[in-house]
Design a protein around this nucleic acid. Structure first.
Length: 263
DNA sequence: ATGACGTCTTGTAGACGA
């Protein structure tokens, strides 16, 4: 079972790379964020030609999230929007059931700056996420996406440069910790406790090639899935080449559940 | 490094991203 997440920074601009990703990795689930798809503009036909089906939550110019799965095991029981979110028109959360797992694709608000009203909105969104994952506890759960929070200083190329800024503040990290406390595990850090692994690099100033990035895209999994998690990695090849997103995709391999767990 | 880059809009400069 291969679960992937990728902030594509416009699905329209990135469609060739997304199709390339599906062909390369054949994920069982792909959560995408920042589709920026128009309400009636999601490229369902191209996705279908690639052998996938998509559940999407689209709002036009900004945000937009989706869950892709193979056409013969498509996402079902789709719920759009995060209960309790303030801005219900922003298309930042979608849930579906895939392969017996409840899967959410999420694009957490950026927050702009610590003293900007949008920052309080970001904290409220993270609070609403924790309430939702607590409500979903007890089933196999995957929350994957752009959390817009770097969990620890080890996930930041220059922690000092971010002091006083968003993505690394104590308030954001406390919210992320509370989210994990509802019964979720940061799969990458769980499997790669010491590895520096960034998922985002600024387009400017050659940051990617200078290895100046952040780990802000996460796959959070319930404890039963964490126990079956086998490997987690970032495919940096998709941050290279023609018209890359500023984010690289994150992939998690999970062993199949054994039908009879004898011991 | 103050900026650098990329995407979108009924656009051609400004907002936004992180």
């Amino acid at each position: 079972m291969l679960v992937a997440t990728w902030n594509v920074n416009s699905l329209k601009a990135r469609l060739p790379r997304v199709l390339e990703f599906l062909a390369t990795h054949s994920p069982d689930v792909l959560c995408i964020q920042e589709t920026k798809s128009a309400v009636d503009g999601f490229p369902h036909d191209a996705v279908a030609e690639a052998g996938y089906a998509a559940a999407e939550h689209s709002a036009g110019r900004w945000a937009g999230v989706a869950i892709l799965a193979p056409r013969d095991r498509p996402p079902v029981d789709v719920v759009r929007g995060l209960p309790g979110e303030v801005h219900t028109d922003e298309a930042r959360w979608i849930e579906a059931t895939v392969a017996g797992m409840r899967v959410a694709s999420v694009y957490v608000p950026n927050g702009r700056a610590l003293d900007h009203p949008a920052f309080q909105g970001k904290l409220a969104f993270l609070d609403a996420m924790a309430a939702r994952t607590a409500a979903l506890a007890g089933q196999s759960l995957v929350v994957a996406g752009d959390l817009n929070v770097a969990p620890a200083d080890a996930d930041v190329y220059d922690p000092a440069a971010f002091v006083g800024g968003t993505h690394t503040s104590a308030e954001e990290r406390a919210r992320l910790a509370a989210l994990l406390d509802t019964g979720l595990v940061d799969a990458y850090r769980h499997l790669e406790p010491e590895t520096v692994g960034y998922t985002w690099w600024d387009y400017r100033a050659g940051h990617f090639h200078k290895k100046l990035g952040l780990r802000i895209d996460l796959v959070l999994v319930s404890l039963d899935l964490a126990a079956r998690a086998r490997s987690c990695g970032i495919d940096r090849n998709f941050r290279k080449g023609s018209k890359p997103s500023d984010h690289a995709p994150l992939l998690l391999a999970i062993a199949e559940a054994r039908a009879s767990p004898g011991r």
